[in-house]
Structures are given as structure tokens and as C-alpha cells.
Design a protein around this nucleic acid. Structure first.
Length: 589
RNA sequence: CGGGGAGUGGCGCAGUUUGGCAGCGCGUCGGCUUUGGGUGCCGAAGGCCGGGGGUUCAAAUCCCCCCUCCCCGACCA
């Protein structure tokens, strides 16, 4: 089929839309691919829909090749299954809810574990039916608190979600691995570089979970990657290499020093360096010589709350995301005046290990950064206003109840795998795979008979690819200042033919070329507008981003047309008779 | 939910400080002109100035209340 600009349902914009910030959003709107219908909700125009369907097609082909079977579930779902797994409540405000005329509750599916599980339960009941992997490509709905960046993070978005069903753990691992491999080849084919980072399973429960992130400046996830090995990880999941314990023979004994008005690390370090008797001979005191102890409040799912003391080197902040991931499923709340009032052993600004620990004065569990190993020396609070203790040695003078990876990760920190330095990057999550285990099968009572005739709970995996988001990510990394530059497989057309001139001839040649290319299976976008000026057409072609642009214009008198590579801007003039073969070749490579 | 910005023809914006005929560019429609990088000229259509209330002879403009959108953060399979 030939798309004709003269009749295409398209309006390109000369100016950037006011509400678009990131390049993919800006260009997709300007080039007439999408239009905003409501916050975080977009309509797809002909070019956009074609590009979108191409992403879908690639994903579908890769899933089918891996042996997964496509099905299609409703987007509008009844409340009951979500009630049974607890997610009707857990999802909170993030879910779009509605009622039917009888007053029954429905929701627009944010994800489909429950429905897939029930469908399998409906049909299968024997271990002989497993393993099974099924998937769908469906629009999902989440009432995000803040949709942003166009289709990158919308409230309606399309997702390919697969679910695997196995009788045992070994089967689950095999299914998980198969999906992982299929994802790698899918993203490779989409031209999306990706790093695979281990993720916290979060609300999904389960044991193993990995995210596929594609690096981009506009990404909303930060991750770390190693500058020399291929390690990559979520900042919230990166583990800190634990140093060897050191001997502490010969270290000076701990001694309490008078340090008035030093409630912060900065004031403390300044004071240590400014007072003659506190100064060290070898080097000045630094924030990293201090041990900062802070108190947070954990709220457990049961509703009980508990104070927790965390000790980190004084030059580091506690990263709330990392902390949250470490204490999951408990959540972290700020401590209040009342919490301190109720526990007079905690002297704010001067909290030290002496009172910390479940069996110590403050009766607060005490977890320290893994770098606080036996033999390390610290300056830390002496539990009295204006006093700090110096040369307090871990392992000799105090013991924590355990360690916690809550301190922030910084550029240059050592790689947990190879020890060289880490760098921090931004990315967007384009895929996520979970070994769910039996959480959903148990809640919904999905069991099969095993070879001994006994009922066993099925173990599941769930695997998602953000399809519409992948399109945004592709646009994000395939554009220049003039417009989009599609990879051929995603492009709404293979060749964009532009006819210019006041005579009929270039238009006739363009028509003829379009027809011949179409007959050879090349997808053609033909700019046959007679009224539009050449500049307008060239600019539109650059904006729309079809990878190959053919101009039938002034060279037509020499029997030639111009073929331009959108990405490299390389142009060549070719005789009309040769151009079709040439283009077929270009499109095949 | 916290911080910041903004709501004015289809799109992008000025006008609000200091109240006085609602403007500009693009787009659209008609006519002529032009055809290798958004051609030029002439003419035209198109407005609840986010909503409600108030002040005033007079409100896009001042006051009060509300709504919405965008960005940063929190949140987020």
C-alpha cells in the first residue's frame, strides 16, 4: 500500500508543542504520530500507529519464536480476582476503578496475573499440561500520580505480558531463562541497548526479578554500571563490597572528647581539625572518619512500628530508596519529636553505638554499613550533648546487630563484582521479568495433579515488555535536530518519495517509482502534494524520519532522481531506470 | 502530596506591572504568485481571555474562591 501525503490524515507542526519536553515526545507530536487526548493518554495517528504496530510485530515474532502462545484478555476486569490476591486494596489509587449499572466494581487492568492464572486453572489440571507460557499484547491502565514524557510514561500504555506455569522450581527457572533470552533478542532487534539489573521484587513478591533498562538521559531510573566488567545494578540493589576485618592490636583506646556545638558531621569535622589537642598528625579529619547514626521508624505491614538505628560513614547520606528496598515489606517513616521524647537514651546529634542495639539502653536495633568492619576506627556520638568519642573501634568497642546496605552509592564506588569503579547512569525500564513463585497460584488456588496423583501448587513467572514505551525509547535514541530517524523495521515506511517542481513530470516519475516499489514489497510514503513548497516537503520528510528519502525534482531532466540516507544525509543521484533495484537492495540490508 | 511554572482563535505566544475597541506569528479558507529547504502579495473566517463570585462607569488586566495542565521531587512490575 502506498501512503499519499496528499490525503494522509496528518498535520505536522512547525513549532514544538508547549507541553512536550523530552525529544521523543516533542518529535512524535510534531511529526504527527500521536496526539494527546488526556493527561498520559494518547491517540495514535496513521504514521504513529504504523510504527507502533511494527514494534508489536517484532515483539510478537520473538515471543512466537520462543514458543510462547498469544492469547488476548479483556482490559476491563471484574473486582473479585483482585480481591482474592489482595491487590484490589494494595494497588490503591493507582488503579482505574469503575462500576457497572448494577453497582458492581470493575477495574481497567493494570496487569493481568490474576486473569491469566484463573484462565489456566479453568482449563488445565495435570502436570502433563505444563510447562506453559502464554502472553498477550494489551493496553494497560494505571492512574499514575504523574504521567510524563508522552508515551514514555502514560496512564494508558501497551504491554506485552507473558506468564509461565510450571510444576516445580526447576521448571520455573527454565521458563524464566527462556523469557530472559527471548527478551535479549527482542531488544537487540528493536535496536535498544539494554542492561539487565537485578530488581527488588516489591509488590510482586517472589524471589528473582530482573529489569531491562535502556540507557537514556530522559530515563527515570538510575542504575550503576561497572566501567570495566559488565556488572550493572539498580542503585537500590547494589551491594557494597565488604572489606576484610582488620586487626586492632595497638590501636589507641577509645576516649570521649568535649566537642561543643557539633550536632552535624560538618561542624564536628571542623572542630576536630581546629582544636590543637584533637588534631591528628598524619592527616586532617574527614567526614569519612566519622560514624553517623540516625534513627528511622519502620512500619511493618502488621501496622506495628519500630525504631531502627542505622550507622553509616559520615560522608554518606542514607539513600531512601535503598533503605526502603532493604527493609521491605516494612516502610520507612521519619521519626518525630515524640519518638525521641519517648526514648531519652537517644541524644539527637550525638547518638553513639554505646546505647544502640537491642540489649542496650535505647533498646533500638542497630544496623551498620558493611564498611564498618571489625578494626575500623571511628569518631562518633558519645550519647551526651556536646561530646563525641574518638578511636571507637568496631569489634573491640562495639558490635552492631547486623549490617544494612542503606548508604548512598556514588560515582566511583567499587564494583561489587570486580572491584573497579562504578558509574551512575539513567535509563528507562523497557522490560521486567519475575520469578513469581506460588503467590498468585496459592491465592487463586491453581493446582495440578503431579505424577503421584497429588495436588501441587503451580509455580509462576510473569514477564513484561512496555511496547508503547519501547517505541518512545526507540524515538528517543533515533533522532537529530531535524526530526526522527527510524530504524527500518520500525519506520512507518521504507522509502519516502518527494516530488517537487511545477511540471507534471517529477510527479509522474514519483508515481511510477512508487508503484514499482510497492509491487516489489517496499512500503512507500509518497509526497504527491502539488501545492506544498519544496522546502515544506523536505522538512516534513526529515521530521517524519523514514530512513530513505527519494527526491524527484530538478534532476529529472537528466533522467535522474536523488536518494538520500536520512541518518547520514548522504545523497546520490541515480538514473531512474536503476533506482528501484537500488532501493530494493537498500531496504533489504 | 511538597516545590516551581502556565491557562488568551486550531498551534506557538504578546498583552496583565499602570483597568479603557482582544493582538502578533504559524495554520485554515478565497485569489494571484512561487516549485531544491516552511515563497511573496491581497482578502477572509475563526475568541465564554480556564470557571464562579466580587470591586469598578468600565476587568484578559485588580481582589476572593475553585478547576485544569506542564516541569522537579515523592510515588511507580
Amino acid at each position: 500500500m502506498i501512503l499519499r501525503m496528499s490525503t494522509l490524515f496528518l498535520r505536522t507542526l512547525r513549532e514544538d508543542p508547549a507541553d512536550a519536553e523530552v525529544p521523543s515526545h516533542r518529535l512524535l507530536v510534531r511529526a504527527g504520530y500521536i496526539r494527546r487526548a488526556a493527561p498520559g493518554i494518547y491517540s495514535w495517528l496513521p504514521l504513529g500507529w504504523r510504527a507502533y504496530l511494527n514494534v508489536e510485530r517484532v515483539v510478537r515474532e520473538e515471543m512466537d519464536a520462543a514458543g510462547f502462545q498469544e492469547i488476548h484478555l479483556p482490559a476491563l476486569l471484574p473486582r473479585e480476582p483482585y480481591e482474592r490476591t489482595g491487590r484490589w486494596t494494595e494497588y490503591g489509587d493507582d488503579i482505574f476503578r469503575l462500576k457497572d449499572r448494577k453497582g458492581n466494581d470493575y477495574l481497567l487492568g493494570p496487569t493481568h496475573e490474576e486473569i491469566f492464572t484463573l484462565l489456566v486453572k479453568d482449563l488445565f489440571s495435570s502436570y502433563k499440561d505444563l510447562p506453559l507460557s502464554i502472553y498477550q499484547i494489551q493496553w494497560k491502565y494505571r492512574d499514575e500520580p504523574r504521567p510524563r514524557a508522552g508515551i514514555m510514561r502514560g496512564r494508558e500504555f501497551s504491554m506485552k505480558d507473558s506468564y509461565s506455569f510450571d510444576v516445580d522450581d526447576a521448571g520455573l527457572v527454565a521458563s524464566y531463562t527462556k523469557h530472559r533470552d527471548a527478551y535479549i533478542s527482542t531488544f537487540n532487534r528493536l535496536g535498544l541497548d539494554h542492561v539487565i539489573v537485578t530488581a527488588m521484587a516489591g509488590a510482586m513478591g517472589g524471589s528473582l526479578s530482573e529489569e531491562f533498562l535502556t540507557p537514556t538521559e530522559v530515563g527515570e531510573d538510575t542504575f550503576v554500571r561497572c566501567t570495566s566488567c559488565d556488572y550493572a545494578g539498580n542503585t537500590e540493589a547494589v551491594e557494597v563490597p565488604v572489606p576484610e576485618a582488620m586487626p586492632y592490636d595497638g590501636l589507641p583506646a577509645a576516649h570521649v572528647e568535649d566537642t561543643p556545638d557539633t550536632p552535624t558531621i560538618e561542624t564536628l569535622v571542623n572542630l576536630l581539625n581546629s582544636q590543637e589537642k584533637l588534631r591528628r598528625d598524619d592527616r586532617p579529619w574527614q567526614a569519612s572518619d566519622t560514624l553517623k547514626n540516625l534513627i528511622v521508624k519502620l512500619v511493618h505491614p502488621t501496622g506495628e512500628s519500630e525504631l531502627l538505628a542505622i550507622g553509616v560513614p559520615g560522608d554518606r547520606e542514607v539513600d531512601e530508596k535503598r533503605l526502603g528496598a532493604q527493609v521491605y515489606p516494612a516502610t520507612v517513616e521519619a521519626t518525630t519529636e515524640e519518638d525521641f521524647a519517648a526514648n531519652p537514651a537517644l541524644v539527637r546529634g550525638y547518638i553513639g553505638p554505646d546505647v544502640l542495639g537491642e540489649d542496650k539502653a535505647a533498646k533500638v536495633r542497630y544496623l551498620v554499613d558493611p564498611r564498618v568492619v571489625a578494626g575500623t576506627r571511628w569518631v562518633t556520638g558519645a550519647n551526651e550533648p556536646g561530646n563525641h568519642v574518638v578511636d571507637l573501634v568496631a569489634g573491640r568497642d562495639f558490635e552492631a546487630d547486623g549490617t544494612i546496605f542503606a548508604a548512598e552509592i556514588r560515582e566511583g564506588d567499587p564494583c561489587p563484582r570486580c572491584g573497579s569503579s562504578l558509574t551512575i547512569a539513567r535509563g528507562v525500564e523497557i522490560g521486567h521479568i519475575f520469578a513469581l513463585g506460588r503467590k498468585f497460584a496459592e491465592a487463586l488456588d491453581l493446582k495440578v495433579l503431579d505424577e503421584n496423583g497429588k495436588q501441587v501448587v503451580v509455580t509462576m513467572g510473569s514477564y513484561g515488555i512496555g511496547v508503547s514505551r519501547a517505541l518512545a525509547a526507540i524515538a528517543e535514541k533515533n533522532h537529530d535536530d531535524k526530526g526522527l530517524i527510524w530504524p527500518r523495521e520500525i519506520s512507518p515506511a521504507d522509502v519516502h518519495i518527494v516530488a517537487t517542481g511545477k511540471n507534471a513530470e517529477p510527479f509522474e516519475v514519483a508515481e511510477k517509482l512508487a508503484a514499482e516499489l510497492d509491487a516489489r514489497g517496499i512500503r512507500v510514503l509518497l509526497d504527491d502534494r502539488r501545492a506544498a513548497s519544496p522546502g515544506e516537503k523536505f522538512n516534513d520528510a526529515d521530521l517524519i524520519g523514514v530512513p530513505t528519502i527519494v527526491t524527484c525534482g530538478r534532476r529529472i531532466v537528466d533522467g535522474k532522481v536523488e536518494v538520500k540516507d536520512r541518518r547520514t544525509s548522504e545523497r546520490i543521484d541515480l538514473p531512474i531506470a536503476e533506482v528501484v533495484d537500488h532501493l530494493v537492495e537498500v531496504c533489504a540490508s
